[in-house]
Amino acid sequence: MRVTLTVNGERRELEVEARRTLADALRENCRLTGTHLACEHGVCGACTVLVDGEAVRSCLMFAVQCDGREVRTVEGLAGADGTPHPLQEAFSAEHALQCGFCTPGFLMLAAGALQEDPSIADDPDRLRELLTSNLCRCTGYESIRRAVTRAAGELAGGAS
């Protein structure tokens, strides 16, 4: 089936089988391998991307469902000149990654949440609830929490 979607601001026309998940379409068809796949059943959150601004598990959506929609992946976080996104800066500064496998998912989870409501970083309960969405097996949750809080501060300060 022919699917037209916008990925990180770029219009893409893909020819995919209906059974192709969004995650596989991004990785295999678009060659955007920053989106990671681990459990493929919605538990780990490594494949989290934004669809029309909302964080979703790309392993639990089919690419055909995204026809006409806007997808943002970890490759679309940094500025056009390569300047890292405040979340990426904060993850680095707070040592919020070790092996890095879960990082793209956490970045997109946080990007979606902060874009929708930056005040989530001021509410420890809501932030914790958000971050339980994804798994980090290096157990870096506390540093991830600090990084998201730090990035929220930077974003509120007017950086982009």
Partner: peptide, 8 residues
């Protein structure tokens, strides 16, 4: 579940 699951 979790926020991204609840979004769908």
């Amino acid at each position: 579940a979790h926020p991204p699951i609840r979004a769908r």
